[in-house]
Write a protein that binds this DNA or RNA. Structure first.
Lengths: 214, 214
DNA sequence: CTTTTATGACCGAGCGCTCGCTCAGTAAAT
DNA sequence: ATTTACTGAGCGAGCGCTCGGTCATAAAAG
């Protein structure tokens, strides 16, 4: 488990200057993410990515070795953003008695903001080569892991009824996925509920489970 | 809301004999579904589909007008199967006091059996032309709708505490999505839980929510 | 009954084109 | 002079789909 320097270096590049690599790759990732969200991975061409990123196709291929590389970089980027969002949110809610409710709220808001990106990961992970797909799925779990730790912390200091690890982990998965649910059913749910409605109802739902078994 | 004859007729065909159309299309859908699950829609070629279905490419295009048509037929087929599964299951559980638990159980088992198909819909719906994508999403809702009705029925006859329509519908969505969760987190969850474990825990979870607010 | 014509299902070589990727060359910096 | 970053015309594999044709069967004509 290393720090911020993700697996990004593993993507091959011909360019020596690391700063330049980072800068150009950011351009590429930004452009590609938008295109992938709008059209999907397969319908987006490398030429489109290059043009939108403001580089030539030739240059593009100095910074990545394949189109799949670009997708992988995009997925990494998204997870970094989600991580950052979650970390920030957790920091903001380290105290008080309704901690879990706040945690859920903050996490759901992250999902709300990043809807398009989360959806993208659900839909295009499969287009990745096996090794990297595994990485992306692991990243996905890491976020659930954060929730597990938060829950465990709360259970330890008595702010939450104690429960088995099994149950605790399942609750974390449920929170994660119910956050995602807002991203992929939003087109329907948003007709009736605002994100705030959604958060309120689902929070009640989740807290209900935990309180019940006291 | 019509009966079984789904929107399938809307997919154009050159062949006159309806029985033949149905038979050949079944071959095509069976073959295509397997390929799409294994390789994804875009990496599957029309030639592969034809070969696996036991017809020539020429013939394939007598029964559909495009590759997207095939995907649409596959999606329709999957929803029919899920519908059938759910309908059967509901029939099996029309009485008793633990009805909701049974309904959840049966629905989750359908998700379990149809994992690959459900996953396919999550991943490839976007590859469909807009009009058909809408259809597929509507189908998706129809299943949640069935759950809504079951819940409403139970609430009416007092087997379930009364609750607002909003809440009732949200519970139905949650059941639907938690069923799906087993399909797209199975690769991880199955390490620790069997499907029976999963059903038990999630049922407790869901019932907890409802009972709480009495 | 035999021959002719018409029809509907099936076939697959090949067309037209797209797209991922390369590489010979240019320009600037050291 | 050498290295580094950049360029875009072009390659060629592979794709979705077409279309001219074959064959079996059936209806019509003789």
């Amino acid at each position: 488990m290393q720090e911020h320097p993700t697996h990004t270096q593993e993507v091959a590049t011909q360019v020596k200057n690391p700063d330049l690599v980072e800068r150009r790759r950011r351009q590429i990732v930004d452009a590609a993410a938008k295109l992938f969200i709008a059209q999907g991975f397969h319908k987006t061409t490398t030429r489109q990515i290059a043009r939108a990123a403001g580089v030539s196709i030739g240059s593009l291929y100095e910074y990545v070795a394949s189109k799949e590389d670009v997708l992988y970089l995009v997925c990494e980027f998204i997870h970094q953003e989600v991580d950052r969002g979650v970390a920030e949110a957790m920091q903001r809610t380290t105290v008080g008695k309704e901690v879990l409710a706040e945690v859920i709220r903050e996490y759901f808001l992250v999902c709300h903001r990043m809807s398009d990106f989360i959806l993208l990961i659900y839909q295009e992970t499969r287009s990745l080569p096996a090794v990297w797909r595994k990485r992306v799925l692991e990243n996905e779990l890491r976020i659930t892991g954060v929730l597990v730790e938060v829950l465990a912390g709360l259970a330890d200091c008595g702010d939450l009824p104690a429960m088995g690890n099994e149950k605790l982990e399942m609750v974390a998965h449920n929170i994660t996925v119910l956050g995602h649910m807002w991203t992929f059913r939003r087109w329907y749910l948003a007709r009736q509920y605002s994100i705030e409605d959604y958060i309120r109802m689902q929070t009640e739902f989740i807290l209900g489970t935990i309180a019940r078994q006291v």
